[in-house]
Design a protein around this nucleic acid. Structure first.
Lengths: 193, 193
DNA sequence: TTGACAAACCTAAATGCTTTAGGTAAAAAC
DNA sequence: GTTTTTACCTAAAGCATTTAGGTTTGTCAA
């Protein structure tokens, strides 16, 4: 009988597509085997186990996101770069909900460090550099930004905004305005609270 | 043989505890049955299915969080109230990671509206009222706040901050300072961008 | 007290996903 | 053209979900 031509790469790629179409939780060895019309056990020659498979999909997602972010911020600076970087996150989450979910799959330290996630963090720092914060405040700001990106897209995708006006994108842009504003006048330690 | 005394409430309560100890994904019908030393099928007299079980745990988590939030903001106003509300979220996530995960379990619209989640949103609005925003901007601010709370705690719990100084709590407080600052001077539509 | 009813729990069985062990056949390498 | 590697297989065990239908236990009324 003809061979399916399985490869680790093909499995990961098909898994990524499946994630976007049916949700990351639908990515199972069984589902992939059905897709390739192959016995489930055959997959285990190409991936160690489902954790391995999911990890690879997560890394793919992070690299993809990092690439898009890199393109988006190229040639931009200041608020322009900030908004571009932000929109890459939100657009990616909307276009690829499965990969976005995958990007939050828990990675072991080694994998995380080498992933596109680290690259994204570096890009955030680069974008923030224009605001002239101290190194410490830059770290705080990276965390604030990352939290907002993740939280907002998670809530929007989960339908958390769907039962109240206005459109999510309006709040998204307005919040970015606010974040830009606060980065420009980053408050000193609030002994004046 | 003696009866285990199963109840929907007991199952949900045990499930909540199990979630905190072993993770929300470890909450399965089988695991609960083992805990109560009962056949798995016996659970199905008390919960419809695992989705029902998880939904109930999610509602418990949201109600718990809403109660704690209510206590925390009582008698406070302005930034004081904001920080108190924020800390309830973060403290809850740290003390009850399983319940926190459960609180993000996808609820159907009906359940969501009647849940503690809606109550928390109302409390956020109340806290924001002190800043004197327009109704529309208040909605934007609610979404910004919610996104930050969710995103930050998710990242912190997931270990996203664990490989760089400083301590997460420093960034948390600093970000809250920043958010308080931006709420006080909420930027007009940025035609002056 | 007894008898009936509901609630609590059971066994059995089907279905689906994960993983390991060990085998066969096709493609690649020499 | 034989050897070796790689792709894929069968078989089987383990565990989770869910349904169907049966038995026991507690309760409440006649």
């Amino acid at each position: 009988m003809a061979r399916a031509g399985l490869t680790t790469e093909r499995l990961v790629s098909a898994g990524a597509q499946l994630a976007d179409e049916a949700g990351f939780e639908a990515v199972t060895a069984s589902a992939l085997a059905r897709l390739f019309d192959v016995q489930v056990a055959s997959l285990y020659s190409h991936v160690k186990n489902t954790h391995d498979l999911k990890t690879r999909i997560a890394l793919l997602a992070l690299d993809d996101l990092a690439d898009k972010a890199s393109e988006a911020v190229a040639g931009r600076s200041g608020k322009d770069a900030l908004v571009a970087l932000a929109n890459v996150h939100r657009d990616f989450a909307i276009a690829h909900p499965g990969l976005f979910a995958a990007s939050r799959y828990q990675l072991d330290d080694a994998a995380a460090a080498a992933s596109g996630g680290a690259k994204i963090a570096r890009m955030m720092r680069a974008v923030l550099r224009d605001y002239g914060l101290s190194a410490l405040d830059e770290t705080h700001a990276v965390r604030l930004l990352g939290s907002f990106f993740l939280g907002f897209t998670t809530l929007e995708l989960g339908g958390g905004f769907s039962h109240s006006a206005p459109e999510p994108v309006a709040s998204w842009l307005r919040s970015l305005d606010a974040i830009d504003a606060v980065l420009q006048t980053w408050p000193r330690a609030p002994d004046t609270a």
